[in-house]
Nucleic acid binder design. Sequence first.
DNA 1: GTCTATATCATGATAGAC
DNA 2: GTCTATCATGATATAGAC
Lengths: 197, 197
Amino acid sequence: MALGSQEKILEAAHSLFEEKGFSGVTMREISDKSGMNKGLLHYYFKSKQAIFLGVFKSVIRIMFVNISGILERTDIDFDTKIELMIDAYYSMLTKHPKLPLFVLSELSKIKEFTSNTEIPNTLKDASKLIEENLGKYKKVNEGDGFHFLINLISLCVFPFIAQPMLQVVKPNKEESYSDFLASRKSHIKNILIHAYK
Amino acid sequence: MALGSQEKILEAAHSLFEEKGFSGVTMREISDKSGMNKGLLHYYFKSKQAIFLGVFKSVIRIMFVNISGILERTDIDFDTKIELMIDAYYSMLTKHPKLPLFVLSELSKIKEFTSNTEIPNTLKDASKLIEENLGKYKKVNEGDGFHFLINLISLCVFPFIAQPMLQVVKPNKEESYSDFLASRKSHIKNILIHAYK
DNA sequence: GTCTATATCATGATAGAC
DNA sequence: GTCTATCATGATATAGAC
């Protein structure tokens, strides 16, 4: 798959921004990593912020695309839905372990140009699905649908974003941190299913 | 409490770094916010990194000081320990909601000068306490002590650091996000106590 | 200890040749 | 579309007067 110049720029920018954040990356670095001339960056994008926005929008989609699909399904029971959502998060996190920390970190810094972006709209779509799909399961108490979702996401995502800190604290050094993360998958399923039974 | 020049610099730097990250802050900003002359910054600290390191060390201490104390206690039972630890995290997070995201984000970027810092040592201290104190409770399965600790931290901390994203997704708009966070406190206690019973 | 002045370099962005 | 050259600015850091 031969990438066009614009794609090359976005791809290089993606990996750089994800690693160092918006203000930690220079146009020169994006130019070097993508192999594209510095002038070209400004031919395709009017500014550094514009490149960042392009990256950020695609990254948000990666974060939510699998999960939305599962939330929408009505042909499976509660326990299966839990399993599939955890699988979906793990699939995303295994492919893109640094992605959630990047998104959350940048989102907390962006104040000025939040309104310029379509980010909130992309997110808001998930909001209805939560209420509609989780609310009707008897095992979830009235109004606890959102708690449930947050619990699931917290238990899956946090150990990934806190890896740099937790792998230092981890007691059993014979087991690698990625093995530990993998072992958590069934652990999380058990906890959630028991907690809501 | 009159602050010395060095403290003024660190205090201003703390709030700026926490908000915008290492590379998002300039020496000029620290100078302006602290009211200290730009030249003075270099009189007290040899570089921007040195200021950052001073801030980072104090911030790590804030994150762990309360929790370590509770882990060390042997005069209380399992359920009480859960409650106190959640209270300790909530106390810390309410005072410093942006602190964990800042620490984790910077920690994931720091590669080069990790070894120069004492950060890992500060963290490693918590490691022993986990095994020694949680391992002897019968309710925790063999080897699940670390899982338990990660669950507790994930459920407490993640909703704070993901606030910019989750408050957009949140379905019940009548309830504020901080009210939701507060209501989670008892929710988390219930889940953890039930899950390990 | 505090300040001004300045050195040195890197930054994002533009203009214009090809 | 692609490239070079350059601008204007802002960055960290230093030297030295007071």
